[in-house]
Design a protein around this nucleic acid. Structure first.
Length: 425
RNA sequence: GGAUAGGUGGCUGAGCGGUCUAAAGCAACAGUCUUGAAAACUGUCGUCUGAGCAAUCGGACCGUGAGUUCGAAUCUCACCCUAUCCGCCA
């Protein structure tokens, strides 16, 4: 959500934002509705003012004076009722349009329609070369009894999986390394709920609109698709203290996604599952563009560093306008090399929103002049499992089918340096 | 699941049809006093929104939404949320 004053004064910016994001939104419709809204609001407020004045007189008077005044106000009441109905009608339209206003993408966001137009801004390492034909993670993990997809489906349904033996150990090791790395960045670890109330999803912008990708309970709660939801909900309707610097969280939570729009995609393996775990970085900072930009770069760099610890080839892309969400100002995706598919796959997404989200969740802070302002919010994946296992296993596989443990994970693998047993040559 | 009690400003808490412009206390901020601090005293002290250069003025907000009324924090209805006890339960 944006400030209506800002929208009124920067209608052109909104127009080009919609164009750049490939979002169908007509700001003129909103401005017309807004004009009407202000006009009727003024009338309603004048009538209410009249009523307030008369009300005081009525309280002080009696007898005929009193009855005359009451009669007079009966008419005002009818008029007011009619105007209020008019106002409600305009407000309905106004609110609907307000929720659709796209946030302004940064000037550095590349132009484009879809993820195919995202711009590579960094490339680290070269795609792994093998002296043999590499296997995909599904074949390797099944052969090594590190994952069980058949029983996963039997027990959990489509996209179900078990991580087992070294597969499970590897996941826990990644978590440990992630804790070590990200906590060295002074983030506050927080384990957040996945079961959330509707308000938090409305606040973060996943509702309305994302209903079909969310699991819902019989008590009308939802299972969040990311820890960002509960983390942003943490300070909902509160005034936070940013005088000692930004609030920086490292949130952990199970994540649930129905993947309703992805039925044919990535049907095998650990790339796209209904239930996974994610460590997520979340920042609330002062309402300054420079601050947001600085933290955005920092968040993304934190995750890049983690991937570098694992020594997996990756590249970072700046998402193009058409690949940005309604609220995002700018977004980076980090994509890891996946030998089995011979391409990079997204592992992380770092975005900033200015005050787009905090307006909805109503999280403010007092600035140095004591004025209440909406904070800026940012979030970035720290690390998702099991998706990250795909790249670890495929890039570290050896000719005999075993997997070398990445050096950084050695301290957390209970002495194991190689996973699995030779099964091919 | 059963029963009960509640939702009022940053917090505690009064108000239960018309000076509510929401008491009072605490906290906070400023000042006086003081070498400095504390205490004491004095003053300030909500949010959103519209008009205005500004001082200021108007409107809204007592969990949410409807309703009754000339007038609602106060009455009616529905919903949401919280707490406590019992039951069940990792």
């Amino acid at each position: 959500m944006l400030d209506i004053k800002f929208i009124r004064e920067n209608a052109d910016l909104i127009k080009s934002a919609a164009t750049k994001k490939r979002i169908n939104f007509n700001v003129d419709d909103l401005l017309v509705a807004d004009g009407k809204r202000l006009e009727i609001l003024k009338e309603v407020e004048d009538l209410r003012g009249k009523q307030n004045v008369a009300s005081e007189s009525i309280a002080k008077s009696n007898g005929d004076d009193r009855n005359a005044l009451i009669e007079e106000m009966r008419v005002v009441k009818e008029e007011l009722k009619k105007k209020e109905e008019d106002l409600e009608e305009v407000m309905k339209k106004w609110r609907t349009l307000m929720l659709q206003v796209p946030n302004i993408p940064d000037v550095t966001v590349p132009d484009g329609v879809s993820d195919a137009d995202n711009q590579e801004v960094k490339k680290w390492g070269e795609p792994t070369k093998f002296s043999f034909e590499p296997l995909d993670h599904v074949s390797i993990m099944e052969a090594q009894d590190m994952a069980d997809f058949e029983r996963g489906t039997k027990v959990s349904g489509f996209r179900g999986y078990f991580l087992k033996g070294d597969g499970a150990l590897l996941e826990f090791a990644v978590w440990q390394l992630a804790l070590k790395h990200f906590l060295s960045k002074d983030l506050v670890p927080i384990h957040v709920p996945s079961l959330v109330r509707k308000e938090t999803l409305l606040g973060t912008g996943y509702l309305p609109g994302g209903e079909e990708d969310l699991y819902k309970t019989q008590d009308d709660e939802y299972l969040a698709g990311t820890g960002e939801v509960a983390t942003m909900g943490y300070y909902m309707d509160e005034t936070v203290d940013l005088s000692n610097g930004p609030i920086k969280f490292l949130a952990f939570s199970p994540c649930f996604r129905r993947e309703a729009g992805a039925h044919g995609k990535d049907v095998k393996g650990l790339i796209r599952v209904h239930e996974f775990f994610k460590w997520e970085q979340v920042i609330l900072c002062e309402a300054s563009h420079e601050e947001s930009v600085k933290h955005h770069e920092w968040l993304n760099r934190n995750t890049e560093e983690f991937i570098e610890l694992l020594n997996i080839p990756y590249h970072t892309v700046a998402n193009c306008g058409g690949d940005l969400g309604q609220g995002q100002v700018k977004k980076y995706d980090i994509e890891l090399w996946v030998p089995g598919e011979n391409k990079y796959r997204e592992i992380s997404s770092a975005s900033y929103f200015h005050d787009f989200q905090t307006r909805r969740v109503n999280t403010r802070y007092k600035d140095s002049e004591g004025k209440l302002r909406y904070a800026h919010s940012l979030n970035s994946t720290a690390i998702p499992t099991p998706r990250i296992l795909v790249s670890i296993i495929e890039n570290y596989q050896q000719a005999d089918g075993t997997i070398k443990v990445p050096e950084a994970l050695l301290p957390y693998m209970f002495g194991k340096t190689v996973l699995g047993k030779p099964f091919r040559s």
